[in-house]
Nucleic acid binder design. Sequence first.
DNA 1: CCTACCAATCTGGTAGGTCCAGATTGGTAT
DNA 2: ATACCAATCTGGACCTACCAGATTGGTAGG
Lengths: 249, 249
Amino acid sequence: MTVLQQAGEGSRAVKRTIEFIRHHRLQKGDRLPSERELSDRFGVTRSSVREALAVLDALRLTERRPKSGIFLRNALEDSGLDSLVIQANLDLPFDERTMRDVSEARVIFETHAIRLACARRTDADLNRLRGLVANYYSRVQAELNVANEDVEFHLAMAAASQNAIIVRTLTPLFLMSFQWRQKYFSSPVIRRRSLGDHQEFVAAIADRNESRAAALVQKHVHSAFDEVRALAEGNGQPESHNQWVGRDQ
Amino acid sequence: MTVLQQAGEGSRAVKRTIEFIRHHRLQKGDRLPSERELSDRFGVTRSSVREALAVLDALRLTERRPKSGIFLRNALEDSGLDSLVIQANLDLPFDERTMRDVSEARVIFETHAIRLACARRTDADLNRLRGLVANYYSRVQAELNVANEDVEFHLAMAAASQNAIIVRTLTPLFLMSFQWRQKYFSSPVIRRRSLGDHQEFVAAIADRNESRAAALVQKHVHSAFDEVRALAEGNGQPESHNQWVGRDQ
DNA sequence: CCTACCAATCTGGTAGGTCCAGATTGGTAT
DNA sequence: ATACCAATCTGGACCTACCAGATTGGTAGG
């Protein structure tokens, strides 16, 4: 959550490999070059390549068959969510459709999470949320970025659902949009509006008002999505090649 | 989906490391032994340890700080979903609460998925589902296990929602229960009942009958969960230490 | 021309070593 | 008690080597 690790050769091999898959439009079942050839092509050692392949294996993207080769287990489009997080951290862009799906999924999942939170939240949950809002408030007053704090708050709401799986599901959805989230929250106006929303969230959860809370999610996420959409279009990217990811600097 | 890779030293190092974290009850921020000590302790080379750590890094479980050490980024309890998939594949058991959360999350996510599927499914989606049911039928007739086919069908329903993120979210929930799913579907009675449910699913989606489809999900998942629960209790496991994972043989 | 067979080659898996440079740490001198 | 410095420890990357099974290409036999 705190600091993105700067890419070493290991991470770079992951990036190069994913780029290779993209560039060659490899599909499920296709075979990749051997480890030795990849290390040669990427200009790194086989160790680094093997580290990268271990990661891609864990993400269920590739499958290493001993004495045979490396094969694509899934097409890039239907790999796991964590693979999207990795791609985002590596500055590999997503397409418009993926971002739309993420937004829709987040609304769905978070709506249910907050409904459960209204029904099950404990006083400790409520206190934690209030503490987070207080911290959020002071940071907004100090004109500081609140990208991390926003994620923290939303995950805390999810945690109040008392279902750890829901939290773990929402986490990657936030992480993969971490890059532009930072841009989004660079605007003081946005920060203030977001703070107000959070305060309303807490009030609704405190009152156990499910329908109100659910309505707030829709409004909150959709307005954020529209904002980012406008931001991206303002950058002059053509619609069909919208780059939704881009680390600052 | 097809065959679980037999654990090599690389995967074994992952398992040993997770076991180490569990055994020593390491918490977020705690430091692990150095790579050299881990390789020594596990009896494998540092390369294998580094491969394992690369995986744990990708799963957001650990963080390797250059020239400093290896630290736990998250407690095991709130690592990513994919880390649960890995743990399941490594025969590391889950507790009762996790399985309950998974079941609840699956009902929530799949209910929404199937609602969207009713609204958005194309004729191609419908044909695919019918083909899968036909295949399912013939396998049930032939007294074959349908654990894989069941996952395939449910993911195909999710795909009909036209939201790839929802599919990617449901996938790990299925994968992490893959082990006992195989046991569950070893019963011909279960297979027959499951087949009937699937046929009803397709009918509901064909008619775009959202409420009927949603009701079916509740029934389908809950009955399956109850069955597995009874199965686990029948094994004589005490409630508090229920082992929900256990590869056959 | 087709088939069966075998050996050279290629593959991933693992081991074990080196060097590097920055972080950490503990002892020393102030 | 503090400031400082050098030995030590750490992760990052590179390199070579060996193993054994899968793959493959050519050859001998039908």
